[in-house]
Every structure is written in C-alpha cells, then in structure tokens.
C-alpha cells in the first residue's frame, strides 16, 4: 500500500512538471508621435527644430558654453544617444567621438553626404608616423562646413529628407519649413557675398583656423592665427603676428568670441580692429543659430563698409 502510494505520488509529481517555457519575446516598441532626434552641434539642432517643429524633440547633450567639436560624451550620454529615433552627424570629421562609440547604424545619418567631395583639409595639419603604416593624421578635416551657407542649405535639405523618411505623413510641413529656412540662409549668403565683394582683396586675419569654409566660399584674402579670445597672447605670438602683418597687412581680426579688452586695445594700437564672427558650433547663451549668424553678418558688413 505504501509502495503503491509512493509510486502514485511520483507519477503525480511528474505530471505536475511542465516543460520549460520559451523565453518571452521582447516587447515591440511603441512608436511615439514625436520623433526624438539627437544632434552633435547647434546648426543641426536649429535646422532639425525649425524644420521638424512640434513633430520632433531635438536634443544636443553637449553642455552650453562647451564647443561640441572637442566634447566627448560619457557612457551614460552615449546610452541616451542610443535611445534616439535619429542621430544626425555633421560630417567632415565633426564630433569624431561618434567613431568611438556604439550607435544604432540604421538611425545615424551623416547630413554631409551631399557635399562630401567639397570637404576641406584643415590648414596646418600635423601628421605623424609610428610603425610601418606610414604617415597619417588624426581627423584634421575642416569641419565648420555650415559657415559656407550653401553647404548649410544642403545640410538643411538632408535634415529635411531624413525627417520626411521617418515621418512621411508630415512631409508637406517639413518641406514648407525647409523652404522658409533656405530663404533665410540664402538671404544671409547674399549679404555675406556682397560684403565680401566690398572687401575685395583686403587682407583679413582670423583668430583660429576654423573659418576655412567662410574663407573659401566668399574668396576672402585671409590668414589664420591660433589665438584664444580669453587668453592674452604671449610675446612670441605678438612677434608672429607682426611677421604675418608685415606680409599680410590686415586691419581686421575676426574672433570666435568677444576678446579680452586688453587684447582688443593692444590690437588697436597696432592698427587692427576686432570683429566677432561666432562659428556657433555650440548652443549660444542667447538666441539660436540663425540669430547668431545674422549678428555675425551684420558685424561683417559693418567691417567691410568701414574698410572702404
């Protein structure tokens, strides 16, 4: 009897065991109505926000006041990029940290594809060699492509195309906003071209070698220094400036940001006036990319008029 009961219990135990269930399938993502777009600089943030309007949420994680071209996100910020519906790259080696992180390739868009052949090598690139591989440099392409407003228009069009592919139901709204943005950029381009024409071949100086595209687009007669607006130049830098000005008698020095008063005064004593032309790669403290560029153009026009 006991043996029979034990056998029956054993059989009941076996019958109560169920085969291992399959691992649950991952939950399907629910598409949200608002597209979450992560970008790498302010021009892209402005283009995406202006074209996308209320249909997009645009995020530039680089802190305000930091140049995104030299910023590297930490792992947690990269994880935030991974969660984006779209990641817009500026191309031309800008934010080359993207090559050092893991992002979903299908959602990363290089908005410079249309003008890749027009990307310039930055002047004064340092190459180095170690081992048998020969010379190479580390990502020294000139990357402020938006300073050539024609390239900026192409980039804005690429942003629009990307948003349309992601949200085709809003194509007419995106195209309409793009047209308005292009009109604004064309107007600025026209103003800059006219101002450059007034300058003719007047020599100019730029504080930093980040104006390659501005110089190329408007055929400016320019030389670049390597000065910081918030760092008084060293005696050697003053001597180098004197040597440059001896061959290239510039009256204007264009800065990325407002220089220290003492620098401005010292330059004025040497016959050089300071003008701010902010490349606006990062989020400005006030306004947006278009506002900063309008202010840049206004100051540039004033300088060209004063140089006559």
């Amino acid at each position: 009897m006991i043996r029979a009961f034990s056998f029956a219990s054993f059989v009941a135990f076996l019958l109560s065991c169920s085969p291992p269930s399959e691992a649950p399938a991952p939950e399907a993502a629910t598409p949200s109505s608002q597209l979450r777009v992560f970008v790498v600089n302010e021009p892209l943030r402005y283009f995406a926000a202006r074209i996308g309007g209320s249909h997009v949420e645009v995020v530039l994680p680089a802190p305000s006041g930091i140049d995104p071209s030299t910023w590297t996100p930490d792992a947690e910020t990269v994880a935030a990029y991974q969660s984006a519906d779209l990641v817009l790259r500026s191309g031309a080696g800008y934010a080359d940290w993207v090559d050092l992180v893991s992002l979903p390739a299908a959602r990363v868009v290089d908005t410079s594809a249309a003008y890749r052949q027009r990307v310039r090598q930055r002047a004064g690139t340092v190459t180095h060699q170690h081992g048998p591989g020969g010379e190479h440099s580390h990502g020294e392409l000139a990357h402020t492509t938006w300073l050539d407003l024609q390239l900026a228009i192409l980039q804005a069009a690429a942003v629009a195309d990307t948003l349309v592919r992601a949200r085709p139901e809003h194509e007419s709204a995106f195209r309409s906003e793009l047209a308005a943005l292009v009109a604004d950029l064309e107007a600025l381009d026209g103003q800059l071209a006219a101002a450059a024409q007034e300058l003719a071949d007047a020599p100019l100086l730029f504080s930093h070698p980040v104006y390659d595209y501005l110089i190329g687009r408007y055929a400016l007669n320019a030389r670049s220094l390597d000065w910081e607006p918030d760092a008084p130049p060293t005696p050697r830098q003053w001597r180098d400036l004197a040597a440059v000005v001896h061959e290239h008698p510039a009256r204007w020095l264009l800065w990325e940001a407002e220089p220290l008063t003492e620098i401005e005064r010292a330059l004025r004593e040497r016959g050089i006036e300071s003008v701010v032309f902010d490349p606006c790669g990062g989020t400005p403290e006030d306004g947006d990319f278009l506002g900063v560029m309008k202010a840049n153009v206004a100051r540039f026009e004033a300088a060209s008029t004063a140089s006559e």
């Binding site: 399938a25 991952p26 792992a75 992180v101």
Partner: peptide, 16 residues
C-alpha cells in the same frame, strides 16, 4: 536576435 540586457546596459563606448 531579441537579446535583452538583464544587468547593466549595452556597450556604449569603445572597449566595452
């Protein structure tokens, strides 16, 4: 492959 992260997060930067 429908792989789910049970602890931590997916690799984010080079070397992870």
């Amino acid at each position: 492959r429908g792989l789910r992260v049970a602890a931590g997060r997916p690799m984010a930067v080079l070397g992870e």
